[in-house]
């Protein structure tokens, strides 16, 4: 009984943690340094109710926006945040 309780608790925690409903990837120009990535990540922190996590890959020059389940963010808002932090959006892939 104790084992079942522990296993089910772990499963609940695991699925709670990875329950992002949607991931949007955005190609960005100028994304060449560690600090560029920090800046963009901080830019999306203000949208924490929508964007749960920001993943950044400097090799592909892409950012990955993991959205809260059931929520969405417009292309205009994404462009606005990235532009206001000094970078240019090339393409948004949904």
């Amino acid at each position: 009984m104790k084992k079942i309780f522990i296993i089910s608790s772990i499963l609940v925690l695991f699925f709670t943690k990875i329950a992002y409903s949607k991931v949007i990837d955005v190609e960005v120009n100028g994304l060449v340094c560690e600090f560029c990535a920090v800046t963009i990540e901080k830019g999306f922190k203000k949208e924490y109710q929508i964007v749960q996590k920001v993943g950044i890959n400097l090799d592909s020059k892409k950012i990955f926006l993991h959205l809260e389940e059931g929520s969405d963010i417009s292309d205009a808002k994404i462009i606005d945040i990235i532009t206001n932090n000094g970078y240019n959006v090339v393409k948004i892939n949904r």
Binding site: N29, G30, Y87
Partner: peptide, 12 residues
């Protein structure tokens, strides 16, 4: 003041 920034695909 940042006077100008050039954002390129693989450079800044």
């Amino acid at each position: 003041n940042l006077i100008k920034r050039w954002n390129l695909p693989a450079a800044q």
